[in-house]
Design a protein around this nucleic acid. Structure first.
Lengths: 351, 351
DNA sequence: ATCACTTGTGGGAGCGCTCCCACGGTACCT
DNA sequence: AGGTACCGTGGGAGCGCTCCCACAAGTGAT
């Protein structure tokens, strides 16, 4: 019995079958129309569409998911505590890009935080249950097990910022190498002779690339390499400060600094101030990220901007393609794709 | 966890039936164990649990949703552009509360923005497809059609901030009336004699309640009512400014102002400054919301704090209860529930 | 006229679950 | 002893879709 539990017979939502009856066609045909198959005659299509409209038919997602073995949803996984998500514009920009790419799709976006162990546990179950067709992974640390878990579960995934030069996942990144070059070339172009670099955490691939860009830009400009001009930082303010102090000690003659992040630059600025160096008169300073602090620093900080929103859009499109590829067990082309987007130097008073 | 990834000999994820076979029981029994039914013997339960663990069984959500006619998901609908969501701490606090209430639940949270017409269109389809079991509605404007749409679709919903005294939806609100009283009583307690009020948009129910609280607090303190001390605002800075100017014109002797929002207070502060009144020496000022600007204002603003996170938690619990009630077509008790949470006065230098 | 395609269509067979009825077994009554 | 309660359990009957095979009808070449 059981037919109509909670709702009345005519009160429930119409089903495919009911639409078919109304339109005087078979179930399969309605399904074809709903899914936009080309193998339907114009007349039939019109009839079905009329029936759909009259009945107010809306497909049942659960039934579709069960039958077709897909969920029509992707997840944006943020392996950070919620706080950072709200604090850092990075995430809202990213979210905007993802949303834009999804906006004319049937795909649904799930936002999942995995900052705490507890949340990670939930996420693992979530993925094991294959509740999404694909995953967007942002801000992943080098030793995070998440990417491997995803490959093992054979869930399509796109990562922002590859973990290494031979990242196995499809990835989208901004041009860390090129961005660093832009910064350094800018400094040289302004007549600076002795450009130092405070790196980021070197277990982050992007930070390595920035060092490479720094080195190559100097070399190409005919400046001789000087490892004494490079000091290790860790993206933090305190790290920037310490690194700057070390640099001033070693090379008091430096007249420019390229810092691997704006926050690092803020730390460097402190150390410079304390050493009595004026910015930009004595020492020019360039940061990376073009975050809010860059604009509000005194003096405002020249910085390398990454096209975050565009990255979000690109990641989403790549993921959608990957999901689509996997649909009818298409030719499994394990062609890994790495997309790199250009950065932009935002010039301000610090350089 | 699941030693054998997801693939078994049969290639796919294990099903209920496979678990049943493995445990030597029937399909129904496994279902009962999975869903925590008490009508299973201890021995059987253990056997099933062992089989589940060995096989790494994870229920198929789509199948469950289809058979049980539920989704195990609720939506947090934000009828605002994304920007506001990220800018205003209100939303992150709310989200934190909702997350907390959901954290030991199987329920999934969907975050849905409905700021633009386009997004609202999508939302409508979304709801029509019954893709969530319930909806959390925050920051709803008085004339928003969303609440009615929800009732019509018979989707359980909880609203933050009832639209009127006889809100039909279950609602959670902070005690606007009591908060206003706190503010005014505080001012009187500090010896202020002539307390003015700049209201919010009076088509917002909460703003009306604040006026009521203001009036009653004055009356109970034995101050005679004076409508000249009340001026209409609209929650905006400019509105606060204009209202303050009007008040100063009418009642130059006022020595305290209770503004319906921090932003309004900021506008009032400007007008006071321009009129040469010192805060708090000449005029004491109290705001509402305890937002970031309250802390950063000069002088820091005394303000009424609403327990946003707690409201989120309460809303979620009410919604979960409502969803559960509706499960086996239980006694449809149309008992509307309105929960009101206490506010707290945060005293700072402005009063 | 026959054959070989192509195109549009109907509908059976599931997808993996929940719901619920039926049934054998025990326990407690009369 | 028979009757009446329950348990705990197995499994049929769907939930509303998609997939795919079968088949009628049309097209053109032979």
């Amino acid at each position: 019995m059981a037919s109509h539990g909670v709702r009345g017979r005519s009160g429930g939502r119409p089903t495919l079958e009911e639409v078919a009856a109304r339109a005087g066609v078979g179930r399969g045909t309605v399904s074809r129309v709903i899914n936009g198959s080309p193998r339907v005659s114009e007349a039939t299509r019109a009839a079905v569409e009329a029936a759909v409209a009259e009945l107010g038919y809306v497909p049942n997602t659960a039934a579709r998911a069960l039958a077709a073995n897909r969920t029509d949803a992707i997840a944006l996984v943020v392996p950070e505590p919620e706080t950072r998500f709200f604090t850092e514009p990075y995430f809202s920009d990213m979210l905007r890009g993802v949303g834009a790419a999804l906006s004319d799709t049937e795909m649904q976006l799930l936002l999942i935080f995995a900052g705490s162990d507890r949340e990670r546990q939930r996420l693992a179950e979530y993925l094991a249950a294959h509740r999404v067709d694909g995953v967007l992974l942002v801000s992943v640390h080098a030793d995070d097990p998440l990417p491997d878990m995803l490959s093992q579960l054979e869930i399509p995934a796109v990562i922002s910022g590859p973990r290494s030069a031979d990242e196995t996942l499809t990835s989208v990144d901004s041009d860390n190498y090129g961005g660093a070059r832009q910064a350094v070339e800018h400094l040289i172009g302004r007549g600076r002779r002795t450009v130092a670099h405070i790196t980021g955490r070197l277990d982050v691939y992007g930070a390595q690339r920035r060092v490479d860009g720094y080195r190559d830009a100097l070399r190409d400009a005919g400046h001789e390499a000087d490892e004494l001009l490079i000091e290790r930082g860790d993206f933090s303010e305190e790290g920037g400060r310490r690194a700057m102090e070390a640099l001033l000690e070693r090379r008091p003659d430096l007249d420019a600094v390229f810092a691997a992040s704006d926050v690092t630059a803020a730390g460097a600025r402190q150390a410079l101030r304390e050493a009595g160096r004026r910015i930009p008169d004595d020492v020019a300073l360039v940061g990376y990220d073009d975050s809010a602090i860059a604009r509000h620093m005194d003096p405002p900080l020249t910085s390398v901007r990454q096209p975050i929103e565009e990255m979000g859009r690109a990641m989403t499109n790549l993921l959608l393609a990957e999901v689509a590829d996997r649909r009818p067990s298409a030719t499994r082309e394990l062609e890994r794709r790495q997309m790199v987007l250009a950065t932009e130097l935002v010039e301000r008073a610090s350089s």
